[in-house]
Amino acid sequence: MGMTLQVSQLRKTYRDNVIFDACSYTFKDSMAYAIVGPNGTGKSTFLRMCALLEKPDAGTIDFLHGDRALDKSDGIMRRITLLLPSVGVFNTSVYENVAYGLRVRKCKNTEIEQRVAALLKLVGLHDKMKRRALTLSSGETQRMGLARALAIAPEILMLDEPTAAVDTANYKAITDILLSVKHSMKTTIIFATHDVKLADNIADRVVTVSDGLLMEI
């Protein structure tokens, strides 16, 4: 079961500009949402607030499991993830990068090996697992980031511009992976993109940021 994300009366200003004002929206569990719009409209800020990396000026962000609202004691930060547009590559091997989230959860080595191998296969980097991650191309880095995010089996998977700065082959690969995740994992997917085609391909619902609110298209 995925997780429902509910934002209520969210307000966020940035250098006197109101980005969100009284914004309320519910991202239902196990569904895929695309937040579309040009750069600078607040898509990234919204995802960062939902990933608890940034605090809103006002309003609430609630995570619901069924009807039950989760709190800090439920370890929300360990159940959601956000793949940033710049992946944040650790200066180690591809394998260790993907294993990071499992290591911080103190998973057993055998479990880590199995999951990392399966995910690297999924993203097509199985043959590069021993390579230094910083030597990957930008498309490969993005796929590695996706594998790293999926390794922790997040109940909410957020992605900020997952196909920005990737070539056609990697674009197709990432699209296929996201479609596969959508169909095989019970994960709520929320991604920000300026690519309407990607939004149409993957999302069940497409929303846009307009006048400080999230509006369904």
Binding site: L53, R79, T81, L83, S86, G88, F90, V104, I152
Partner: peptide, 15 residues
């Protein structure tokens, strides 16, 4: 060390 490294670790559930 880029802020993105701290954030990447945080988004993967690191304390």
């Amino acid at each position: 060390v880029s802020m993105v490294i701290r954030q990447a670790a945080a988004t993967l559930g690191a304390s």
